[in-house]
Design a protein around this nucleic acid. Sequence first.
DNA 1: AATTGGTTTGACCATATGGTCAGACCGCAA
DNA 2: TTGCGGTCTGACCATATGGTCAAACCAATT
Lengths: 195, 195
Amino acid sequence: MLTDTEKKIMNSARAEFEQKGFNGARLQAIADAAGISKPSLHYYFRSKENLFQKIFDEALDEYMPIVNTWKNDSLTWEQKIVSFTQELVKYVQNGHMLFIIREINRNPDLLEDRIKKGKGTNSFVTYFEEMVQQDEIQQTDSRILFIMVHSICSFPVLNSQMFQKSLKLSEKKYNELMEDYAKVVADLIINAIKK
Amino acid sequence: MLTDTEKKIMNSARAEFEQKGFNGARLQAIADAAGISKPSLHYYFRSKENLFQKIFDEALDEYMPIVNTWKNDSLTWEQKIVSFTQELVKYVQNGHMLFIIREINRNPDLLEDRIKKGKGTNSFVTYFEEMVQQDEIQQTDSRILFIMVHSICSFPVLNSQMFQKSLKLSEKKYNELMEDYAKVVADLIINAIKK
DNA sequence: AATTGGTTTGACCATATGGTCAGACCGCAA
DNA sequence: TTGCGGTCTGACCATATGGTCAAACCAATT
């Protein structure tokens, strides 16, 4: 269990690391935001590296907890796709996607270490494999579908700044467009793979 | 025109900044890689900030020089999509996409400044607008199509590490899959928007 | 009141890093 | 040869930053 102080530290550390990245993050800033002194940081978490590991691990743990959609047998495959895309977009919007990608790129060992530690990347590959078996779906490589759906849902959030400028939209307008996007895109995907 | 030394510096600076990010990059490392001394860096480029700006601007300039596809009138719209997706995937693979996204996220002013400086983000929005007019295409929001196509092509490259682990593929196998991906995905997009 | 164990911090250290400066180096024109 | 403009660098500086340590603080126990 985490003490009160540890929670405060984790919270401000998460904010700092996510916004600035490992290299940009400052322990002093984390300490200040948590309302404690720098030595206290080291008292609870040995080092910057160690604190970062905790935050990063946590981010990967929380990566996509959207399993309900797939387990719900009363949904048709079309409904599952609609629900999944919407949930995924929503998830990425509040999530740690860019943080994870950025830091993995900085240091690929982060993923390797984690896999060695047992915790795999909990993916939804199998769900896609099953879905593609459906009679009404044309023959499709489930892996390609898997990658495509994730891309469609994640990238517009990651790259929002560029898209906003390209389309000359305010942040508000862009977010409005995103709501449409999630719906329209699900239909397009369904349309694309339906026989 | 750039002197020989300036070119060497730009090259090693580009490599360093792209791999480590602004905060992770070290001027000493750039100087070493260029085979010159640190003061020489400051002689040619006033400061780290300034050198970074040059590299970043250049990266944005080179962002997607794939205009030929669209200007080629002998191609059907289907062929254009096929060609465009393949070119785009190829571009992102060698490109600076993650670098750009990472740094914009670190400091959104980077984009703002550039737009104020006149250089817009050269997008392909208009091409999509025109294409969607086609009779054989069902009514589609060109902006959504624009975002979707870019996402499909860019994200698999950015997030390659995660996808590799999720799908339990070696880097080699993943790159092979990517070749299929570019083709298959074009068909899926066409299928999705065709009447 | 005194002791003890866990918690917290001011003061400090070693190192890394961006940046500066006086002077060396070098090709070339006078 | 000399002088000059441009190029280049060793030595140095100021500051930021991760990390340490001895001492203070404090609640609970005896």
